[in-house]
Computed example of a mutant assay.
Amino acid sequence: MSVSFKYWDECADPEDMEAMWNHPEVRTEWTGAGETEGQRVHLSRDPDGQPYLTQTEMRAVAEIVTRRQFDKKLDPEMICAIAELESNRQPLAMGCDKKTNLITIGIMQVSPKVAEWIVREEDYLLFPVEEDPDILYKPFVNVYFGAAYLRWLSNFDGKKQFDGPSPIEAPTFPTSPVSPSKGFDLYWDSRVSSEDMEHMWNHLDVFKEWIKSKEIRGKVRFSCNKEKKPYLSRVELRAIAEIIVSKYFSTRGINPTVLCALADVVSMRFIDGNEASTGLMGIDYSTAFWLYKEMGYRAYRVDYIEDLTNPFVSMYFGAAYLAWLSEYEGR
């Protein structure tokens, strides 16, 4: 990879550096580390020598971008959580989906094709990504396009087939990585425990939505796209996130809004996941099993990979992983 950064000044414009120095927590952290305003600021490095943003720096970038370009309509915590999960806050991170050959780069793992689509179709014209895709390695640029994609997702109605070019390149909605859902699998009650179903029925917004769609207890249908791929409505997704946080993470600082945003980005709310990952939150089986066995997150069992296609199970281990990341130090 030809792109490399040693100093903040190499990956941030002077205006961005001024904004960072004007952020009180960043100023305190930088001066405490021996940095001097007006001189080049060192990027932190992990034991492997890879540059990364500290949590303070990541938070500042998210706050600055959302304040400047998105009128504070996006939650900086959501952006920070995605950066944590996608890249460990490493601006030079790069990934590749082996099935689609889709390249993702930077701190929020934005695909150049996604960024180009956003510029072309959504008129986010601040950065010339079509001319120079490598600018996506710059934290402020990457967060800008990641936030723009989140804004697009927040206006996306999953109950309608998307007719335009998909920003994640797939011409249709993702295909389940597990067995195609048929028959009883299209019902909530076949995947979710009776206890969790009771919590769903007791959630006022879910109750209203299900009654309006004429659902009956014991046989609640999942919403499906034209290819019969089951997904959650935004009301259902929000309810699951709130229930999981309330029951298991109420003292851990986990934000249901962040969990919902992650599900939107990772799986577009499809309960089977997509071609690259399993389940609503995209938590792979090995990670879920490690969290269950080694870290003590045992509210739900994960005996088989198919267990992660239960939206409550996937949400639980997604929240558990986020809780673990928020406490992990040394990166």
Rank of each mutant, 00 (worst) to 15 (best):
E215A: 15
D123R: 11
G158E: 09
K212T: 15
D132N: 15
E198F: 05
V141N: 04
G158Q: 06
Y231L: 12
I216D: 02
Y248W: 06
G183R: 02
E169I: 01
K208G: 00
H199R: 14
M197D: 07
Y231F: 15
S154D: 02
D132F: 08
G183P: 05
I168W: 15
K229V: 10
L126E: 12
E121K: 13
R221L: 14
A148K: 06
R234T: 13
E236Y: 01
W210Y: 09
S193F: 07
F140Y: 07
S176N: 11
R191T: 07
E195V: 14
V141R: 01
S176R: 06
F156V: 00
L126P: 00
L125R: 12
I216F: 10
Y231H: 13
S179I: 14
T172E: 15
I243A: 02
K229P: 00
P139M: 09
V245S: 02
M197E: 09
H203E: 13
D185T: 01
S154P: 00
W188P: 00
C224F: 04
T175E: 12
E227H: 10
L136I: 11
G158W: 09
K219D: 02
Y149L: 10
P230A: 13
Y231A: 01
P165E: 12
Y137W: 09
E195R: 11
A241G: 04
A239K: 06
R238W: 02
K226F: 11
F140M: 12
P171E: 07
E242M: 04
D163I: 10
L125E: 12
F207E: 15
K160G: 01
F145D: 04
S166D: 15
S154H: 01
A241S: 03
K228C: 03
F145L: 06
S233A: 04
A148R: 06
S179C: 07
E169N: 11
V192P: 12
K138Y: 06
T172I: 13
W188Q: 07
R191D: 02
V141T: 11
N225P: 01
Y137N: 05
F184L: 14
N225F: 01
R191G: 05
L204G: 12
I243Y: 00
I216V: 12
G183W: 02
K247M: 04
E227W: 08
A239Q: 09
P171G: 06
L150K: 01
R221N: 07
F156Q: 13
V192G: 07
K219A: 15
P165Y: 11
P230E: 08
F145N: 07
P128N: 10
F184S: 12
N142R: 04
R238T: 15
H203R: 14
D185N: 11
S166Y: 08
P177I: 10
W188E: 03
Y248E: 05
D157F: 03
S250K: 08
V206L: 03
K212Q: 13
S176Q: 06
R120P: 00
D157K: 05
P165K: 14
K208P: 11
P177S: 07
D205T: 14
D134L: 08
P171K: 05
Y187F: 15
P180I: 09
N155V: 00
Y248C: 00
R238C: 10
F127L: 06
R234Q: 05
K219G: 04
L125W: 04
I240D: 00
P174H: 05
K228T: 09
Y187P: 02
